[in-house]
Amino acid sequence: MEINEEEWELINDDGFVYKRLKRPRVHPTAAAAQRPDPEAEAKAYRERKKTVLLKLKTKYQQEIHHWEDLSNTLKSLQDRTQNQPPPTILQDQTVSFSQENSSDSSYQELTHTLLAQVEAQEATIYEVSRLCDVAEALCSAEEQRLMQPYIDLPVWRPSPQELMTSLLEE
């Protein structure tokens, strides 16, 4: 292979002198003809940006809707526990029990108050437990969604021949 001296150029880089192959020179009009239209590029960029922003908006709207549902559930739980009157069946049993064993009305009122508090706490614990189950289900679904691409990798296929075939393909 014969190297022509005209293909090389002498470069002086801050005192360090060396030769390198010449770069092809492009005529300015040819370079302008090769470039895509800047307006078309800008339009394509705006379209890509618009689709990305619309996807992001949809994602955030779904998340906001989910948080609003959880907030409304929590508010209804708080309202029920604060405004919940004690059940009448248990009150009647407590009243008859209190009248038989004690004539003092202060014991009766204390019993009703404590019973109402315990029932309100029971309802609160039930609702919080239900909300925890919902949160746990959401976390499990998200974890499964994040793990699925790794589970689907060809490394986990049962036969070594399939693994080697998939590795050779990629």
Score class of each variant (00 low, 15 high):
Asp14His: 10
Asp14Leu: 11
Gly15Met: 03
Phe16His: 05
Val17Thr: 10
Lys19Asp: 09
Lys22Val: 02
Arg23Phe: 03
Val26Phe: 05
Pro28Trp: 02
Ala31Glu: 05
Ala33Tyr: 12
Gln34Arg: 15
Gln34Lys: 14
Arg35Asp: 07
Arg35His: 02
Asp37Leu: 05
Glu41Arg: 06
Glu41Phe: 04
Lys43Glu: 07
Lys43Gln: 06
Glu47Lys: 03
Lys49His: 15
Lys49Thr: 05
Thr51Arg: 15
Leu53Phe: 09
Leu54Lys: 09
Lys55Leu: 14
Lys55Pro: 05
Leu56Lys: 15
Thr58Glu: 04
Gln61His: 11
Gln61Gly: 01
Gln62Ile: 01
Glu63Pro: 02
Ile64His: 09
Glu68Thr: 10
Asp69His: 11
Asp69Gly: 09
Ser71Phe: 15
Ser71Thr: 13
Ser71Glu: 15
Leu74Cys: 11
Leu74Val: 07
Lys75Phe: 01
Ser76Phe: 02
Leu77Cys: 09
Asp79His: 01
Asp79Val: 00
Arg80Met: 11
Gln84Ala: 06
Pro85His: 09
Ile89Ala: 12
Ile89Asp: 13
Gln91Gly: 10
Asp92Cys: 04
Asp92Arg: 14
Thr94Phe: 07
Glu109Gly: 14
Leu115His: 06
Gln117Met: 14
Gln121Met: 08
Ala123Arg: 14
Tyr126Gly: 12
Tyr126Met: 10
Tyr126Gln: 12
Tyr126Lys: 02
Arg130Trp: 00
Leu131Pro: 09
Cys132Val: 08
Ser140His: 08
Ala141Leu: 03
Glu142Ile: 00
Gln144Phe: 03
Met147Arg: 10
Met147Pro: 07
Met147Lys: 13
Ile151Val: 12
Asp152Met: 09
